[in-house]
Nucleic acid binder design. Structure first.
Length: 795
RNA sequence: GCCGAGGUGGUGGAAUUGGCAGACACGUAUGCCUUAGGAGCAUAUGCCUUCGGGUGUGAGGGUUCAAAUCCCUCCCUCGGCACCA
């Protein structure tokens, strides 16, 4: 009987589905385990082999946990709002809903063909009104609590996607989606007050079992700085600056305002060089974010002639500048410049020939700015003090305020596009902004004729009079609906909750099941969402915690990032490059189990590794050998020897340990080693041993395992078998190899009885001919014994 | 520039509580089988070698009986952030 995966893989997929064996149990007494994949955007291109890597890993772990007796929740759904479907609609006139449905069907089939053990009864789709009713509900709750606010401000605008973007969606000055350079555009916006949660989003990272890279990225993104707010007098006006180095205040030889700082306008009227200032302001306004970044090396600015600021530490008069190296949106939009101890101020001061006054010892300020700590000089009463202490003392002396600042900015939440959740608000000329009544949710996305975004910064919804024009829910006068939609990230902020209770019409999730299944025990997906989805969903979750909807502070207890599968050429796989490998192709030629085992064997799960067709063949060869060996075992009916039982128990232990750490590659290597070992000792392997190994291998190659289990004479599903337990007593060796080193170098390996004492082993080691050769005429200084089997003779 | 991850054969990688470096696989070579092989099986495979051995985990130094693993200095690759005061 040959290994022909095509002849049975589909059969088992159908049987699994018919028997509902992957369905999460309701009101189960078993311990729960929630294993979640980042749900995909149902793109028209479908899935290629790279997409499966993470899904296979969570599938393996889900099957493993089920065998261990857990009630596993392992669902799948669709993050289906977004631009590709909408752009396709613009091109073809097909409604995004229709395209989305088709794409979902296609990808779902691909997933089913891959034998992934999802509980499909839990399936969700973020574009389903029954789903986005809850997205809108959460938004209204945020609105109610003052966390959603309207603002008219310059934001990042993608000229290609014709929509505003969140800060997190701008990568190196370009749109995260399409790579077009972003422009600044002043727009009326809905903004979510994520900054209110900055401190909690930062602190709660500590308790999460996430990879170091993602935690660091979030930390840096939130960007907490502790410092002080210090007041300077500029004539009769007050200028507030934020600094993390109040200890350097005596070294402040000028102050700088951002061009956008309000005080600039106030001072403009009384300075001598008004024209020069106006030219500069005009020039900076025209610069894009990108140009500002490119000009980091050359710092420009204008001194406000005729006004001076007062350094509050020593009462000295210092010049005032406007320069675009100071950012308007951070701190107070102004800085106290300490050229001796800040690189940027140093550069600016050099360019404008300003005083550089050393106040902290430790560097050579003739060469460069010294940004480290040290002892204060030129600082009046504070001379001789350590800067760490001076920070406190100078703040006290000024009676200034200690403050904390974050780089994190509020979340620009509205999009000027069609295919997203409508924001459920109404603009009433009398009553202002009025929320749609919760009873009216979902506020459905209306049908439009034209999906094309406008250039005016309004969504296509603005053109549908019958939808826009409503009566105000409060005063019943004529009013208009909000026409912006929500960003793509909205629907994924809480989907993990909806999986628990997808059909509930009364609440997002019922309390009992939420308590039972949350938090997610393992969350697997790509690292590209580090500061997008993963930050946004933590924010929403904390909000839901505050209003009592959820009982845990954090949604994802453990997060692991799947490493990319690169194309053969080391490039990222993409349809446009034409270097993708289709999963259908691999499944057709080698079977699903080969695809699964190969993807897990390629290398460490978390690393990016190139696809290699030779490697696929190697795995296919191994599965063939495994199959053949199993069939032979059935025919032969031997009893397992002690040696085999030992290897069997060691295998159980090793596979279990590696699965816990997601070290799939080494787990599979152990199976290969085991097979290499037993193939030489065929007559010592029992059917029982083989069945145990089959259970261990089942999560990796479930189709093959089911088929072999059946061939070995079992009527039941191997899927429903218990995970084997190992017996440490059976793992003890009676013979071992003694390693003998001389001065740390291996000189002999001797087969010895494992029960010998240290003294006996030393005698054997010294007697060895090979070792004797090295000991000739030398004095043995010391013998070091490292249990259980290494001896180092020092001469 | 700052932060993070990493650097091991021809290749993917194993070994991280300091204790046999190179598991497992790919590739390659030789042989067997075959009408044939992009099939299967067997053996070998870090490098150098005068066949005694020497040497070897990015480079250099240190600690130790013993270092891929710990410490110091430096280099390189990848990812993120990027005038955040």
């Amino acid at each position: 009987m040959k290994y022909e995966p095509k002849s049975f893989e589909k059969k088992w997929q159908v049987k699994w589905e018919e028997s509902n064996i992957f369905k999460t149990e309701e009101d189960s007494l078993k311990p729960k385990c929630y294993i979640l994949d980042m749900f995909p955007y149902p793109s028209g291109a479908g899935l290629h082999v790279g997409h499966f890597k993470g899904y296979v890993a969570t599938d393996i772990l889900s099957r493993y946990r089920r065998m261990q007796g857990f009630n596993v929740l392992h669902p799948m759904g669709w993050d289906a709002f977004g631009l590709p479907a909408e752009n396709y609609a613009i091109k073809t006139g097909t409604h995004p809903e229709i395209v989305t449905k088709q794409n979902i069907e296609n990808i779902k089939k691909q997933m089913k063909d891959a034998g992934l053990s999802y509980d499909w009864s839990k399936e969700i789709d973020t574009t389903d009104p029954n789903y986005y009713k809850w997205t809108q509900w959460i938004f209204l709750k945020m609105f109610e609590k003052g966390l959603a606010y309207e603002a008219n401000m310059p934001i990042n605008w993608c000229p290609s996607c014709k929509t505003g973007l969140a800060n997190e969606e701008v990568v190196a000055g370009a749109c995260e989606r399409c790579g077009t350079l972003v422009k600044q555009k002043k727009l009326r916006q809905w903004v979510l007050r994520i900054t209110k949660y900055a401190e909690r989003l930062l602190n709660d990272l500590d308790d999460l079992d996430w990879g170091a890279e993602i935690k660091e990225m979030q930390k840096n993104w939130i960007g907490k700085s502790e410092g002080a707010e210090i007041s300077f007098k500029i004539e009769d006006e007050e200028l507030k600056v934020f600094t993390t180095r109040p200890d350097t205040l005596f070294g402040c030889t000028y102050v700088v305002l951002a061009p956008e700082n309000e005080l600039v306008l106030k001072l403009k009227e009384r300075i001598e060089n008004k024209k020069e200032l106006e030219d500069y302001l005009e020039k900076t306004k025209l610069k894009t974010e990108r140009e500002r970044i490119a000009e980091v090396k050359e710092k420009t600015g204008v001194q406000l002639l005729g006004v001076m600021a007062l350094n509050p530490a020593n009462g000295k008069k210092i010049p005032v500048f406007v320069a675009d190296y100071v950012l308007a949106h951070y701190g107070t939009g102004a800085v106290m410049a300490v050229p001796a101890h800040d690189e940027r101020d140093y550069e600016f001061a050099k360019g404008f020939n300003l005083d550089v006054l050393e106040v902290v010892k430790g560097g050579d300020i003739l060469k460069e700015a010294y940004t480290g700590e040290g002892v204060l000089v030129n600082s009046g009463d504070f001379n001789g003090m350590e800067s760490s202490l001076a920070k406190e003392k100078i703040v006290d002396f000024l009676k200034a305020k200690k403050v904390v600042k974050y780089k994190l900015r509020d979340w620009i939440f509205s999009r000027q596009r069609y295919w997203g959740e409508p924001i459920p608000l109404i603009h009433c000329p009398k009553c202002g902004i009025v929320p749609v009544s919760i009873k009216e949710l979902p506020l459905k996305l209306p049908k439009v004729l034209n999906y094309e975004p406008t250039n005016t910064g309004e969504s296509p919804l603005a053109n549908i009079a019958e939808w826009i024009n409503v009566k105000c829910p409060i005063c019943n006068e004529d009013a208009k609906r909000e026409t912006n939609t929500m960003p793509q990230w909205a629907g994924s902020c809480f989907y993990y909750l909806r999986f628990i209770d997808p059909k509930n019409e009364k609440e997002i999730v019922n309390k009992k099941d939420e308590k039972h299944f949350m938090p997610v025990d393992l969350y697997v997906g790509g690292a590209e969402h580090a500061v997008l989805h993963l930050l946004y969903s933590r924010f929403w979750h904390k909000f839901l915690y505050d209003i009592g909807v959820v009982s845990e502070k954090e949604p994802f207890k453990k997060l692991r990032n799947v490493g990319l599968i690169l194309a053969h050429d080391g490039q990222k796989m993409s349809k446009s490059k034409g270097n993708t490998v289709s999963s259908e192709e691999i499944i057709n030629e080698f079977g699903v189990d080969t695809l699964r085992v190969y993807e897990m064997f390629m290398g460490p799960f978390f690393d990016a590794i190139s696809w290699n067709m030779q490697g696929v063949k190697g795995v296919s060869r191994f599965l063939n050998r495994f199959w053949n060996f199993c069939i032979e075992c059935k025919e032969n009916k031997f009893e397992s020897s002690e040696n085999i039982l030992r290897e069997e128990n060691i295998l159980i232990k090793k596979v279990e340990e590696d699965l816990e750490e997601m070290k799939f590659n080494t787990a599979i290597a152990f199976f290969m080693e085991f097979l290499n070992f037993v193939e030489k000792r065929k007559t010592e392997v029992s059917l029982k041993t083989m069945e145990t190994v089959l259970k261990l291998f089942y999560p990796f190659a479930p189709h093959m395992a089911e088929e072999l289990w059946n061939i070995l004479g079992n009527e039941t599903f191997i899927s429903l078998e218990k995970w084997p337990a190992y017996d440490s007593k059976l793992m003890i060796e009676d013979v071992m190899e003694l390693i003998v080193q001389v001065n740390g170098k291996v000189r002999d390996k001797i087969e010895v009885n494992a029960n010998l004492s240290k003294g006996d082993l030393e005698k054997i080691a010294l007697k060895s001919e090979k070792v004797q050769k090295w000991l000739k005429e030398k004095e043995v200084k010391k013998i070091i014994f490292v249990p259980p089997k290494l001896i180092n003779i020092v001469i």
